[in-house]
Amino acid sequence: MGGHLNINHLMFLGQGALWTIGLSVIALIGGGIVGFVIALARISPLKSVRIASAVYVQLIQGTPLLVILFLGYFGFAAIGLKVSPLAAAGASLTLYVAAYLGEIWRGCIESVPKPQWEAAEGLALSRTQRMMKVILPQAIRIATPPTVGFMVQIIKNTSLASVVGFVELMRSGQIVNNSLFEPFAIYAIIAVTYFAMCYPLSLFSQRLEKRVGRGRSNLAPA
């Protein structure tokens, strides 16, 4: 035991950082796809669909991510499926991210002024055409800054996947520390690495927010 921090340790941490990015991307894509469906379901003309999606969002938002990860990992086992930590963590994060992105995006869709819907309706566009050609292009502009901002949360929250044995940045730090016993130095490195991944996104989100703010102030009076 013991020894000093060397290039191999740093390589191992770097690999963990790559898996953190990988898991974040999986969570963002999976959560984005499911979240888009949730957002549409939340404003569905069918009441039952609206209620079902609202219940889903409330359940996920009212449950700690840590618990969702355990449920995902052991839940698959309970129904007889043997899944890798990556699959379990990816699926759990997808469900988690979908609930939040779904709510963020629903808000963005609903913040497109109602007269835009009416104008599109008055031109005989179908509901799908109204959504795809008129509402969503405007909602996407509004949704980009908060979505990029939420990506920061996703990256940080992937650290919880370490509990189901997925070796991302946090878990690789724990492993390195188990052999070196230099917790402060190692967790400082990990903190800096997370910060280096998150800070550019935060900056980007802030810049986008300013740009959208400018664009909206130019819109026609409603």
């Binding site: 007269p115 835009q116 009416e118 104008a119 599109a120 008055g122 031109l123 005989a124 566009l125 179908s126 055409q129 050609k133 008129v134 292009p137 405007q138 502009r141 819109l219 026609a220 009076p221 409603a222």
Partner: peptide, 29 residues
């Protein structure tokens, strides 16, 4: 399709040019 309506607040689609605003419905509908 038989009835056209124009509103007080214009309600042009801000993300489309005037040409695209006009061609949208004839093409899509």
């Amino acid at each position: 399709q038989d009835v056209g309506i124009v509103f007080q607040s214009y309600n042009l689609f801000p993300h489309l040019t005037i040409e695209q605003n006009i061609t949208l419905a004839p093409c899509a509908v």
